[in-house]
Design a protein around this nucleic acid. Structure first.
Length: 167
DNA sequence: GCCAACGTTGGC
DNA sequence: GCCAACGTTGGC
């Protein structure tokens, strides 16, 4: 079992879209970076889990958890001249670009913001926190994964306390 | 194979 | 909208 972090711009496709998608599943298409292509094609396995990260938005951060529900297969959007991600170098016989399918596992009640993540000493060496990091998919260590899930549950508990205190 | 120019990402 | 950082392109 491996863990990942996958970035998407919520204005284009966010976790909100995934909650409404058929079978809460979507193809993770449009990746046009070779390092990330190699992860999609060669490394990501069905059953792996990934954080769904919102980038380039008001509150960048982790919005929930998805699982890989289909392993790497050719990204057909590269073959479609009408598509924004069209790449004339890619052909059905020789596809250059790959995608996986992801299925929603959990949407966090609140996004764990980038600022929240940066505040955690235990997460200092996360790839996502390194300056200049531009990969749209990065591996996440089991220790970091567990730590972030703990953060998510703490946020839930503190919310509960606040609700109780108010009532 | 080098490297400058250019395009893109993404936080702020 | 700015800009740092990085990947890609293409001339040589």
């Amino acid at each position: 079992m491996q863990y990942w972090l996958m970035k998407s711009e919520p204005d284009v496709f966010g976790i909100e879209h995934l909650t409404k998608a058929k079978r809460r599943t979507t193809a993770w298409d449009g990746v046009r970076n070779y390092q990330v292509r190699n992860m999609l094609r060669d490394e990501m396995r069905v059953g792996d889990l990934a954080f769904f990260y919102h980038s380039s938005c008001a509150i960048p951060g982790i919005a929930g958890v998805v699982k890989i529900s289909r392993a790497g297969h050719p990204d057909h959007t590269a073959l479609d001249p009408e598509n924004d991600h069209y790449d004339p170098r890619s052909t059905p016989e020789n596809p250059i670009w790959y995608m996986v399918d992801v299925t929603l596992v959990e949407r966090f009640e609140h996004v764990i913001s980038l600022a929240d993540l940066r505040a955690e000493q235990a997460l200092q060496d996360m790839l996502i926190l390194r300056r200049g990091n531009r990969l749209s998919i990065t591996p996440v260590s089991p220790a970091h994964w567990r730590h972030i899930l703990k953060l998510a549950s703490h946020i839930r508990k503190s919310d509960t306390r606040k609700r109780v205190a108010r009532s």
